[in-house]
Amino acid sequence: MTEALKSAQNRLSAVASSLTWGAAGAGHKFPAFDELPKVDGEPQGCIWGFFDKDGKKDEIGTINLLTPAVVQAASREIQSGEHVQLDWPLHNVEFPGFNRKEFSQTKIDLNETLNFKAMDDELYINTQSGSQWDSLKHFAHQATQKYYNGLTHEEATRTDTNGIHNWCERGGIVGRGVLVDWLRWYETHNGEAPSPVTRHEITVEDLEATLKWQGTTTRPGDIMIIRSGYVRWHDNASAAERRAGTQENSIAIGMQGSEKSVRWLYDHHFACVAGDTLAFEAWPPKFDEGWCLHEWLLVQWGTPIGEMWDLEKLSKMCEQNGRYTFFLTSAPLHVKGGIGSPPGAIAVF
């Protein structure tokens, strides 16, 4: 197939998918950011109650946007059948930050106890120490000490409310993934990219320029994924560099936390966001300015955040295919009240 023919097919597919979205997204009509009903004690832009139904508080947030129609439209991204898993190996983070325990595996020879040849293994993982989803009870608004839809910190410590099991019982996370390959765009236009273990802020202008350069248009309900270079750095760093970058400093590249970023994210109505860096947003956030993206995404809107996803093979596949959209499935661990989980994410082209 010639590159011209492949490009034409991709454009036709994008047009068909965008036409399908008109019907797919009709079930959710969002007010403008400044016209959202005020929620007592919360900043303008909070959507608590928006997804509540039959008097029951919602616990899955913007995953509600992944309707059957949206998933069906996303399935049209499958053209070649190529696929790549986006989970980093569990053992990769040798030196977890924030005093978290490292991954360990114990292999068990069952012949010693059951007298037949077989093996088991037992794993220890801190679900925040590698590729992960943050659930809606992982990170509270630090001033109000509340999680999505008004869950208090005290309630979060003793209930399963807002746990990842809600996503699993709904059928996991399935939709259209969109890679915003900021790293490839930056290096193409500016040369060497900033170190991923500095607090470099990726701006809305950067994201818009990357999408335009890729020829990519987002839709409400998309799963937006940003490649910053953090995993590439980690894969090529020495043990000493990894220790300094992931455990001793806990500073990382990411999306800028600002009013412009918050309004841009709201206006795009993503079902989920993810990235390859430590915390999706530039870390540590500036809590005193009021634009910490964890507080907006997880708390105000109920938008899951994926962190430390391995996007290296995905980036190459997107470049080879000449498109940066794909069908995405994610099967988190089905743990009642789960707070974090490896994503079990697969991109299919």
Rank of each mutant, 00 (worst) to 15 (best):
A271S: 15
G221P: 01
A14T: 14
G175D: 04
D235I: 10
N111L: 07
T106P: 02
L5N: 09
I251R: 05
K146T: 14
P37V: 08
D54N: 15
D121Q: 11
S261K: 01
D288V: 08
Q256S: 13
K336I: 00
P284V: 04
Q132I: 05
D181K: 02
S75R: 15
E208M: 10
W233R: 10
D235Q: 14
E248P: 01
A271N: 07
T210G: 07
D52S: 11
Y230K: 04
S104C: 10
T198F: 03
L151E: 00
G322A: 10
A279D: 15
V70S: 09
I173Q: 02
E59V: 07
L136H: 03
N321D: 12
L333C: 06
E205I: 03
E241I: 07
Q79G: 12
G97Q: 07
N92S: 15
D206A: 08
T188Y: 08
R323K: 15
K107L: 12
G340Y: 01
Y147F: 15
T198K: 13
S75D: 10
T216W: 05
G81R: 08
R76D: 10
F98K: 09
G49A: 04
L211C: 11
S228I: 03
G306K: 09
L314G: 06
W133A: 03
A252I: 00
R176D: 08
S131G: 15
Q128P: 00
F326G: 01
M224H: 00
F51M: 05
E201G: 02
